[in-house]
């Protein structure tokens, strides 16, 4: 039982990261209908930037906002410079551009910082507290920071004029333009915010998975799974989906181990986590593409 609680708790912690990435993916998807395959590599690049600033002597809590802001600018410029001219391009061109971005960010991180694994110190103090047998301080920290970030984003979209304008631009670009909202600007802003959220996710997960150019590939896959489970058209759903997938991932491994112990038959364990994500992705896409909380899109023919 104790193990089960531990697994759920650490699932929640991983889920926080998946939730951030899923949210970043959804923010881009709802406004542009694009799936950002480079989201993970962008986050990885930001994590490296954060490490670099810390190496230069900044503390984590100073470096993080700086990096988030730089990532925001990178996101805005990627949208404006590279994706904007392809507004009406066929899907294949868009996908190819994203794969190109993925390749560039991946290899640039390798060129600049090398491929050896780097230690990324946890920014959270190593203290004992009630329940610290179940969950480590860094894991608690990940969940708390994620929840604060999500709360801030929610408040931003719900209560600020820019947030309202961004929602309008995503939901109905034509009407939004008619009431004087600069839809183009809003799309770029959405991209920038998504990159910033991804940056926070990358910097938070770096102490767990260690810093190297491949660190985000599997995490991105879970981010996709989370976004799909929650519904790729629903920001709140994506967050919930991220947490669900994080817990599910650990539970599957846990029950797989249990099964092996009791019957001696190995079906699934830690080595198959990506397969679990793949199965989630394909199952959701084929059986319920709108996810748990998304709305069904109706296509006019």
């Amino acid at each position: 039982m104790e193990q089960l609680i531990q697994q759920v708790a650490s699932g929640l912690a991983n889920g926080a990261i998946y939730a951030c990435l899923a949210l970043a993916l959804v923010m881009i998807f709802v406004s542009t209908d694009h799936i950002n395959f480079a989201q993970g590599e962008l986050a990885m690049f930001s994590a490296f930037l954060c490490w670099q600033f810390m190496d230069w002597g900044l503390t984590f809590w100073l470096a993080l906002p700086v990096v988030a802001f730089i990532s925001f600018l990178v996101g805005v410029s990627v949208e404006r410079v590279i994706l904007r001219p392809l507004h009406n391009a066929p899907v294949l061109s868009i996908v190819v551009v994203f794969i190109g971005l993925l390749a560039i960010f991946h290899s640039m991180a390798g060129s600049i910082w090398g491929h050896t694994i780097k230690q990324f110190p946890s920014p959270f103090p190593n203290v004992h507290f009630a329940g610290s047998g179940y969950i480590g301080p860094h894991q608690i920290g990940m969940v708390v920071v994620t929840l604060l970030l999500l709360l801030a984003l929610f408040a931003f979209f719900r209560y600020t004029p820019i947030g309202l304008a961004m929602r309008a631009a995503a939901q109905n670009p034509v009407s939004a333009r008619l009431v004087g909202i600069r839809v183009d600007m809003m799309l770029a802003l959405g991209w920038g915010l998504a990159a910033a959220v991804g940056a926070v996710a990358g910097a938070l997960v770096a102490p767990v998975v260690f810093l190297e150019p491949n660190m985000m590939a599997s995490i991105l896959l879970y981010g996709f799974a989370g976004a799909l489970v929650g519904g790729i058209s629903s920001p709140g759903g994506a967050v919930a989906g991220g947490f669900i997938v994080g817990i599910l991932e650990n539970l599957v491994a846990y029950f797989g181990n249990l099964l092996e112990k009791s019957t001696g038959i190995y079906v699934v364990g830690n080595g198959e986590k990506l397969m679990v994500a793949l199965i989630i992705v394909i199952t959701v896409l084929t059986l319920k593409p709108s996810g748990l909380f998304g709305h069904v899109t109706v296509k006019r023919v």
């Binding site: 209908d33 694009h34 799936i35 395959f37 899907v91 868009i94 996908v95 590939a217 599997s218 991105l220 896959l221 996709f224 799974a225 799909l228 080595g271 198959e272 986590k273 990506l274 397969m275 994500a277 793949l278 992705v281 394909i282 896409l285 084929t286 593409p289």
Partner: peptide, 23 residues
């Protein structure tokens, strides 16, 4: 199953497949 998917969604499903292959 890919029959039900178009454009971006199919790209996403196959992308997931590509990441999971070594495992």
């Amino acid at each position: 199953p890919a029959l039900r998917l178009e454009g971006h969604y199919l790209a996403l499903a196959t992308f997931a497949l590509a990441i999971a292959v070594p495992q």
